[in-house]
Nucleic acid binder design. Structure first.
Lengths: 223, 223
DNA sequence: CTTGCATGAGACCGATCGGTATCGTCCGGG
DNA sequence: CCCGGACGATACCGATCGGTCTCATGCAAG
């Protein structure tokens, strides 16, 4: 994490603020911090350059415009989320349900840290009303990809209506992040997990071929 | 609200852009439109004055600063929401569950219209990271009031854990508005109603004195 | 050493921002 | 009638915005 890089050769840690990082990385770090905390429009390029311990000129040598920087920032955030999905897929290759719950758990665990400032995507959309804006398109593409992936997991988990189930899960996951922005965050994580459980229970999967697992979930009408 | 006090004759249409409305009302109308569509920071006072068919000077004669105008706008939006609650309480004085479902229905029906731009509160919070900002405080006070009201309804509906139930409902209601901002809005309303139903089913109320409802999960009736 | 280049520093530009000042006009109540 | 206050138009202010330009420095490769 933040303790690496002592011995040089730290190509791993992407997020350390060590002054020895190349300017481009420092700028992206600073942008991530400031955009997430203050909002896109509220942060000027000068402030980003200052926090990155560099100058506007260096910034514009790496990013054509502020919008390009915003886009790159969102691209990184999206990639981070996708990486979580990938990691879960790797950890539970044959258990789509575990992947779904893992994603929910990941978001649930992130809620307290998010409490002050909500999900970067949701917040950014509020500042990017133009659907044609490249950054906005990037967000929507990411969300669409996540929904597709969730739908696939639901299908592989045997849920009878994977599209609907994935849509409901998206509802709840996003609601949690917004809701955590204000009110009490104390039990938000567990609350989210409970609701996710309730949603999944509403979409009972037929018992796998193995020994019957649990719960007398309504048989899927058939019969 | 904007219909009281001023001696205008049209007490019906609250949002008409008729030029005969006093400037203050026109300014608030324009602000509502522009703030909701473009965002707070993206809209300048000049643009508001233009759309209100007046001038900056007239605007500043009625509002000390742009922030004051933002605050007043949010106050009106909050009052509108509260009015919905009031109307429901009036329509179903002795049926708290109907009030809850009515609120969910109100939001569900509003989702298509909201599709382009999300909930004004959520969007505004994204642009007001400072919790000390008066407008931000107004939003949080409104949300707190709504949560309190929902909690009270859940309690009166006999739900065993009203705080938890109200928190979960808030989760879902806000998630719906965010989720409707991007993805398919087609079935968002019915989806929301389904999830609300699922949440309420998770908090079974003891059967009232009337004819007994089946106490366990009833089959997933009408969607 | 010399050349080349990314960097750091800061002045600078036009546009726009929130907010103010000035002035002519209009309109309704004493 | 006439007068005061609200209104509309416009010019203006200082600050800040995104973005550009110039130039000195430091460093690494040829």
């Amino acid at each position: 994490m933040s303790t690496d890089g002592i011995g040089g050769a730290d190509r791993a840690g992407r997020r350390s603020r060590v002054a020895t990082l190349p300017p481009r990385e420092r700028i992206l770090d600073a942008a991530e911090e400031l955009f997430a905390r203050e909002g896109i429009k509220a942060v000027g390029v000068q402030a980003i350059a200052d926090r990155a311990s560099t100058t506007k000129m260096a910034l514009y040598r790496h990013f054509a415009t502020k919008d390009a920087l915003v886009e790159e920032w969102l691209r990184i955030v999206a990639a981070d989320y996708t990486a979580v999905f990938d990691r879960l897929a790797e950890a539970h290759p044959d258990d789509p349900r575990a992947q779904i719950l893992g994603m929910a758990r990941f978001i649930a665990d992130g809620l307290p840290g998010i409490s002050h400032r909500g999900c970067p995507f949701i917040n950014s959309i509020a500042e990017l009303p133009d659907r044609a804006h490249p950054a906005r398109r990037l967000i929507e593409a990411h969300k669409a990809g996540q929904l597709r992936r969730l739908t696939d997991l639901c299908a592989r988990a045997g849920l009878p209506d994977p599209d609907e189930a994935a849509a409901e899960l998206t509802f709840v996951l996003e609601g949690a992040q917004v809701s955590a922005q204000n009110g009490s965050v104390e039990h938000a994580g567990e609350r989210l997990m409970r609701i996710v459980g309730a949603v999944l229970e509403r979409h009972p999967a037929p018992a796998p071929d193995g020994p019957s697992r649990h719960r007398t979930g309504r048989p899927p009408g058939n019969g």
